[in-house]
Amino acid sequence: SDIDSSPTDTTSDLEHLSENICKSHMETCQYLREELEPSKWQTVLNTELEAYQKKSQEEMWQVCAVKVTEAVQYVVEFAKRIDGFMELCQNDQIVLLKAGSLEVVFVRMCRAYDSQNNSVYFDGKYAGPEVFRSLGCDDLISSVFDFAKSMSSLQLTEDEIGLFSAYVLMSSDRSWLQEKNRVEKLQQRIQAALQNLLQKNQRDKGVLTKMICKVSTVRGLCSRHMEKLSAFRALHPDTVHSRFPPLYKELFGS
């Protein structure tokens, strides 16, 4: 796992990295694909929909902050298992997770998305965008669902999702990185491993480009989440302060 090794990786080096990342993804994906099979779960019933919509904005934000925090914790574990991540300096580990953990949650969401009903696994059910109405962020929610839909239309395998998640996380253009070059090198190796995997899976040549184009979309979603959070906090500072998970505040608080 020496991330400063020679710049020319052999195919077997890339396969080794690929295996490590795919294994890490599977060990930390929160729900297995089989568990998320939409046929195993009900969609939110009308009575439940009403209950979600009747929740106050504060209550619904709190529910979602808890769910996001749970999902982020699995992403932290994912990062820790990627060869090379724990060899980065601690400042950079934190910078990468602060900037990228929610992006990976959004990428992973395509696994839990049912395109037939435009719904996503949430709180033990498959829920459409209307379930989140009381958050008061319809535009953001609808963009998150659109993103899940377009990601899921790529029909990526678990391995492809794992490598793409690692690629998203190891972005060398984040502000405040101390060892940009090391992160850049790691990301280049991940990209090469992803490219190698896509070739092996006989995917169209355009798939990698399509995936890389998604990076700016997912970044946009995360910055809009930050804007919505700061608007919400301006209205309900006490709710955020006393009822939101500490990790959520640490990641998105400033």
Partner: peptide, 20 residues
Amino acid sequence: KEKHKILHRLLQNSTSPVDL
């Protein structure tokens, strides 16, 4: 460090998703 104490702790712990 103080500002990111939970992240620090998560990075240092040998936690697994089962423990989360």
